[in-house]
Design a protein around this nucleic acid. Structure first.
Length: 419
RNA sequence: GGAGGAUUCGCCUAGUGGCCUAGGGCGCACGCUUGGAAAGCGUGUUGGGUGUUACAGCCCUCGCGGGUUCGAAUCCCGCAUCCUCCGCCA
């Protein structure tokens, strides 16, 4: 949720943000109207309750006829209070509904427009030239005995797979390297629950436009997370943090589940787009004034990881219309995929400013002892999809794959060879 | 899955329909005192809403949601969490 005070004071900025996202600027006015209605309702109910309490005191002391008259008045007042409270409750709900529906205010400089309106900020590395026919990751991994899609489909359906042998070992090495780096940078390692309650899923903003992406267990009223961002954001929900020592940083290791509804026919080969994968996710809680610097730091840690696996990549500043509801700005690092001759998303780091924390009621105490809403950010350090870029970029004519230097000690192999 | 118990301001605790519109202790903060400190004394110390230039004021908050009542921490109903016991179980 956007800060209501900001919304009242600078509605034009929020309307402009809505336009940049391709969303309706009138949503702003709906919130303002609901806010006005609520404040009037609260004022009325407060006044009536105050009268009722005064009267209650009198009745306690009164006796005889006076008491009977007061009791009569008390009944009237009770009815009025009840009516005023129900109006207050309705007005509250109406405000919450319109307020929650409004996506985060974008940061100045974020490109306007949709999916294709991103701005490329940087290119790192050069796509490799091959003097042989390039194999795609599925071909390579199957030859290596690293991936079994057919049995994945047999056991669980389309977009499921088994990582086997060196495939499983490669993923473990990759995620371990990511986690080791995170821990070295001061992150607290976390293995979170991957089933969460509705209020946590809702609080992180995933039940809005992307609700159909989320697996839901109706019998138990739980959701499977699509990223450990969800439990890591919920981790400090309702708390008041001490951020005087700088940002609180967590690195989550978890399996992620996505329904991939509406992506029929896209990326059906291999493990680029799957229902279940593993990920190391950075999550940071910080003061709002530090949030843009922190976003750059998360981006830099992602870039360090990409450098370590020796994959060429570019960095894009995602356009407003392609941001999630919670994000105010998002940078993606896209790795080169030789078989497709294009860049594909490998990391994504979002600055959620205070939007997510306000929904989840995460605060911190500032220097003056005031409780203020914290800011949250998240970013990817490694995922199963990275295996695609690693094996394709490091393949050789015979179908073997050279293991990037940094992964060798963790994997215990220099080259992956077909069986 | 079943039975019982618990949930009050950071911690401990008082509390059985109107002197609780929540008291006390610990801790913490500030002040007085002191050469300095301890002790002592005094003041403050949940979170939120509304309101104000800022205060003040007012309202809500005793795990959560309903109900009874002029009035609920207190009575009634439902739920959650934790603990104990029984059953089942990788």
């Amino acid at each position: 949720m956007i800060d209501l005070k900001l919304l009242r004071e600078r509605p034009d900025e929020v309307r402009a943000s809505q336009r940049a996202r391709g969303a309706d600027p009138a949503a702003v006015d709906a919130v303002l109207a609901a806010d006005e209605r609520r404040r009037i309702a609260v004022g009325r109910a407060d006044t009536l309750r105050s009268e009722q309490r005064q009267l209650g005191k009198k009745i306690g002391r009164a006796s005889g006829e006076e008491r009977a008259a007061l009791l009569e008045h008390g009944k009237e007042l009770a009815a009025q209070v009840k009516a005023a409270e129900s109006e207050q409750a309705e007005a509250d709900q109406a405000l919450v509904d319109t307020h929650r529906a409004l996506p985060n205010l974008i940061i100045e400089g974020v490109p306007a427009g949709g999916e294709d309106d991103y701005v490329v900020l940087d290119h790192v590395g050069t796509p490799p030239e091959f003097d042989f026919e390039v194999r795609d990751h599925l071909d390579l991994l199957e030859r290596l005995g690293a991936l079994d899609m057919e049995r994945g489909a047999k056991v669980s359906g389309a977009r499921f797979y088994f990582l086997t042998g060196v495939g499983a070992r490669l993923q473990l090495a990759l995620l371990t390297m990511a986690m080791n780096r995170a821990v070295a940078a001061g992150f607290t390692m976390v293995i979170p629950p991957v089933l969460v309650k509705p209020e946590v899923m809702e609080g992180t903003g995933f039940l809005g436009a992307h609700a159909s992406e989320v697996y839901r267990l109706r019998d138990d009223d739980l959701f499977l997370v699509g990223t450990s961002e969800v439990p890591l954001a919920g981790y400090h929900a309702g708390e008041i943090l001490d951020l005087s020592g700088g940002p609180r940083r967590y690195a989550g290791w978890s399996t992620c589940f996505r329904r991939e509804a509406g992506s029929y026919g896209k990326d059906t080969r291999g493990i680029i787009r799957v229902h279940q994968f593993d990920k190391i996710e950075m999550f940071s809680y910080c003061r709002p004034e530090d949030v843009q610097d922190e976003h750059q730091r998360l981006l830099n840690w992602e870039r360090d990881m990409l450098a370590a696996v020796e994959v060429p990549y570019r960095v894009i500043d995602t356009a407003a219309g392609d941001l999630g509801a919670s994000a105010a700005r998002k940078y993606d690092c896209e790795g080169w995929v030789p078989s497709q001759s294009r860049y594909r998303e490998l990391t994504s780091t979002s600055n959620c400013t205070t939007f997510q924390a306000r929904r989840l009621n995460i605060r911190y105490r500032d220097e003056d002892g005031r409780n203020r809403t914290a800011a949250t950010l998240n970013g990817t350090l490694a995922t199963t999809r990275w295996i695609v870029a690693i094996v394709e970029n490091h393949q050789r004519a015979d179908g073997s794959v050279v293991v990037p230097e940094a992964l060798r000690p963790l994997l215990g192999l220099d080259v992956l060879k077909p069986a």
